[in-house]
Nucleic acid binder design. Structure first.
Length: 598
RNA sequence: GGCCCCGUAGUUCAACGGAUAGAAUGGAAGUUUCCUAAACUUUAGAUACAGGUUCGAUUCCUGUCGGGGCUACCA
């Protein structure tokens, strides 16, 4: 049993004994003692004053004595108003260092559960649009959440659903057919996804021209003009042909897709993310249609006079939702129904996690309701991990308006900043070219990933393209630097010494600052569990930042290798190595590498 | 209009209903004969507004004001 549990238990029994009332376990909540106060664990007595029939100070004092006598790891306590601050024995902390610092897997669950897996869907790009900063947030979040869940002992399946069909895809195809003159990534020197994206933009530009012309000559609304413009009709026609598997259309579609996937893959690789399985909407949308038609036959859905199929969600205070168009083609949610069914059948997952922006909150609400309407008992395994938008100083990024921060460009800039900063600091003189290339990439990605992941996923965040992402302060490179410093000490100590550190519990008078550092590391596994429960990588980021600050203070104040007393030096070396291990494992959960030198 | 989310230092981010609201950055002032100064130390600076619940509210409730999103036979 962990010490915290023992303390909570002791407090609970003491309150029960004193009051004669049953006290449920979950009402005893311990918290970490705040930094400005002495102690390791704090219990707030206010909620129990009525049971204890004493003043806050007396109650806390009473419980403090009980805890000391019942829990051997407890050394002392102090009382501030209604706060009982409990300190653990120094031997407890030393023992923690000696028993835990050897395990490379510190903080990872010992076993992976054999139960049903958790499916994490993320990225889910649209083949018309090159990846931008919004996708970066999505990709990093999804990847990190998957890692965190794994570390907490879940079996995780990472999946990507590529949005490769629909009217929008036909738009870029049409533009390429009409205006492309056979342009390819090779002939143009453009990355495949960028090339296709350009044709999507081209379609919109040409369409706008047509709309403008029609509106100048006839008095109709813009919406009508859009819907009746020749280009739009051609795009619709192309979609019909695509759904009929017209060989020529399919051929163009496949060629363009191949370009896009090659482009996406290179971006994913640079970002360091991957998937266990990739789904394509083109493979799943028909299943969605089948399910909808079945639902219609079973009387769960309604068909209107024009032939369109709808789910009536008015019982749930939502509107009617279109599932099949008048012409029988599928809409976005139709394929989501199919994909969900497919995944459920394949994995019988405990949970299906969708990492998708909060602009789709309504969509997922509707999806769950529709699945329930269709009688799917597993509808509640669906969980929308809804993350906030990345905003620019002048508002949201919009592909159509060209106000996007391109993922590849941003990564290029980050690498360049990393190179320049490192060289300005004059640290590269004895680094090989190969090492430098890897290092700049590591630092660049560290800065970018940390910048994104340190923010609570649910909140919108701001990115200012005019200011480059910081390398000082609460940043990825700060954490990487802290690790590199420790790695440097370990190198200097040498493998032989590291293999036989003589940390002697009895000889070493451990300093409060050293305990503070150990305490921080001690909290790491709990932090991983919490992050897994909340699906929140920001907790890991902030934890690691605090740990590094704690270490840097220690490092500044206490000599490690330069400490003449070998026992103390060994102890500090072991403490430093444990810190480095904790940093490394924590950063791994964010997908951030930590260098040995920088 | 309806529904949802968000308002914390100049700026970007923290804070299970708990103690004196933390950091970073920018501003001011320091620390290199010492293990990497991408570091460390000191300093000024914030809970939009008005009520309510509570021993205790940045956190929960109501209203006002401000910002964003959704409300497509787009995805």
């Amino acid at each position: 049993m962990a010490v915290e549990e023992k303390i909570a238990q002791a407090i609970r029994l003491a309150i029960q004994a004193a009051s004669g009332e049953e006290v449920p376990e979950e009402t005893i909540v311990l918290q970490k003692t705040r930094k400005d106060f002495e102690g390791d664990v704090t219990f707030v007595v206010f909620p129990f004053l009525k049971l204890l029939k004493r003043s806050p100070e007396e109650s806390a004092g009473f419980l403090g004595k009980e805890v000391i006598s019942r829990v051997e790891e407890v050394d002392s306590f102090n009382v501030v108003k209604g706060f009982l601050n409990i300190s653990l024995k120094k031997s407890f902390w030393l023992d923690f260092l000696l028993t835990q610092s050897g395990s490379q897997d510190y903080g990872k669950a010992a076993t992976i559960s054999a139960d049903k897996p958790v499916i994490v869907e993320y990225s889910s790009p649209n083949t018309n649009k090159p990846l931008h900063l919004g996708h970066i947030r999505n990709n990093l979040l999804g990847n990190s959440v998957a890692r965190i869940l794994e570390a907490s002992g879940k079996q995780v399946v990472k999946v990507n659903l590529v949005n490769d069909r629909g009217i929008h895809i036909c738009k870029s195809m049409l533009a390429w057919i009409k205006y492309g003159q056979g342009e390819t990534p090779e002939t143009s020197g453009k990355k495949g996804d960028k090339l296709v994206g350009d044709y999507y933009v081209r379609f919109e530009t040409e369409l706008r021209k047509q709309v403008q012309e029609v509106m100048n000559s006839r008095a109709i609304t813009e919406e009508e003009a859009r819907n009746t413009a020749p280009l739009m009709l051609e795009a619709r026609d192309l979609l019909r042909k695509w759904e009929e598997r017209d060989p020529e259309v399919i051929r163009v579609w496949e060629i363009m897709n191949t370009w896009v996937y090659r482009g996406f893959d290179s971006t994913y690789t640079r970002l360091g993310i991957d998937f266990d399985k990739i789904y394509y909407e083109s493979d799943t949308y028909l299943l969605g249609r089948t399910i909808v038609l079945e639902g219609l036959k079973e009387g769960r859905l309604i068909k209107k006079a024009d032939g369109s199929v709808w789910a009536d969600l008015s019982d749930d205070n939502l509107d009617e939702k279109l599932l099949l168009r008048t012409d029988g083609t599928s809409v976005y949610i139709t394929q989501d129904i199919g994909t969900a069914q497919l995944r459920h059948d394949e994995f019988k997952p405990e949970k299906m996690l969708y990492v998708v922006g909060n602009e789709q909150n309504y969509h997922f609400e509707v999806l769950k309701k529709v699945l329930k309407k269709l009688g799917k008992s597993w509808a509640d395994t669906i969980h929308h991990l809804s993350y906030g938008m990345v905003e620019l100083p002048d508002g949201k990024m919009k592909s159509r308006e060209g106000t996007v921060v391109d993922a590849d460009d941003l990564m290029d800039e980050m690498v360049e900043t990393a190179r320049r900063t490192t060289e300005e600091l004059g640290k590269t003189t004895d680094f090989s070219e190969t090492y430098k290339a890897v290092l700049y990439h590591t630092i660049a990605m560290g800065a970018l990933k940390y910048f994104i992941l340190k923010v609570d996923p649910r909140k919108n965040m701001l990115f200012n393209p005019a200011e480059s992402i910081d390398f000082n302060g609460n940043t990825g490179p700060f954490i990487q630097y802290t690790h590199a410093r420790i790695a440097s000490m370990i190198r200097k100590a040498g493998p032989e010494r590291m293999a036989q550190l003589r940390t002697d519990i009895h000889k070493h008078q451990i300093h409060p600052k050293e305990i503070a550092l150990l305490k921080h590391i001690y909290n790491y596994p709990g932090m991983v569990r919490e992050a897994a429960g909340e699906l929140n990588p920001a907790l890991i980021a902030n934890f690691t930042y605090e740990l590094c600050k704690e270490f840097n203070q220690f490092y500044h104040e206490f000599p490690v290798l330069n400490e003449p007393d070998r026992h103390i030096s060994d102890f500090r070396l072991q403490l430093s190595a444990f810190t480095a291990l904790c940093i490394r494992n924590a950063m791994e959960l964010l997908g951030i590498n930590v260098p040995e030198r920088m």
